[in-house]
Design a protein around this nucleic acid. Structure first.
Lengths: 106, 106
DNA sequence: TTGACATGAAACCGAAAGGTTATATATAAT
DNA sequence: ATTATATATAACCTTTCGGTTTCATGTCAA
């Protein structure tokens, strides 16, 4: 499952469990077992999700004593934001056109 | 493969081919074979991608003569945008805090 | 009406996704 | 030294993903 660069941010956020993990880590750094306690799947399954999130550089883990603490690494979400910004002009046209112009001026 | 609601917008955009299809359809309405001509996979494969995009309500198709024309349906991307907006405050803090405040005032 | 074109749909395939159980190892606490 | 805790890793399982080939059907053009 490990290897390198097999998962990107788009794949990483495709799974609802992984999105929930990101939410939890957005609040604070947490060890694996504490993350697991929020779900009904096994710790092993959560570990795999964390590996996928790691590959996508959305989280990073550091070992402290016998625990492994994971924290959010939000940078790759910028890529998603850029992708999405292309489409912003296609929805709710009236308001978003103004917003689009405004953002161009930054 | 069809059924109902099996794929959401997060899963739909996870695949690079599907993202490219969305780009093509953002320019204009196109028939399946014309879409297929932009890729190296079979028409059948593209049809399946279109089904998945349809389930996620990201595209819609209408039949005209012997062709089936697909067009972009951008609304579900708003859901993605909302999800993402939660995380905006976590990156490039300096600038985005101001932006965050500014957007609150709309 | 006879092809050619555009799509639909079924059957199949290998690989990956998402999960499990079981076993091993390192660290902390007693 | 012993035990409990936290994680790592391997093996395995079922379902889905992304793709193919094949065949059927509807529509347009000559």
């Amino acid at each position: 499952m490990a290897a390198a660069e097999k998962h990107d941010v788009f794949q990483a956020i495709a799974d609802p469990t992984r999105r929930q993990v990101l939410r939890l880590l957005s609040e604070k750094e947490r060890p694996i077992s504490e993350i697991t306690s929020h779900f009904s799947v096994s710790r092993t399954a959560i570990t795999k999700h964390l590996h996928i999130l790691s590959e996508a550089k959305l989280v990073s883990g550091r070992k402290v004593g016998r625990e492994k603490l994971y924290r959010l690494q939000p940078e790759p979400l910028e890529e998603l934001h850029e992708w999405l910004s292309y489409y912003e002009r296609f929805w709710s046209n009236k308001l978003s056109i103004l917003k689009h112009i405004a953002e161009k001026e930054n």
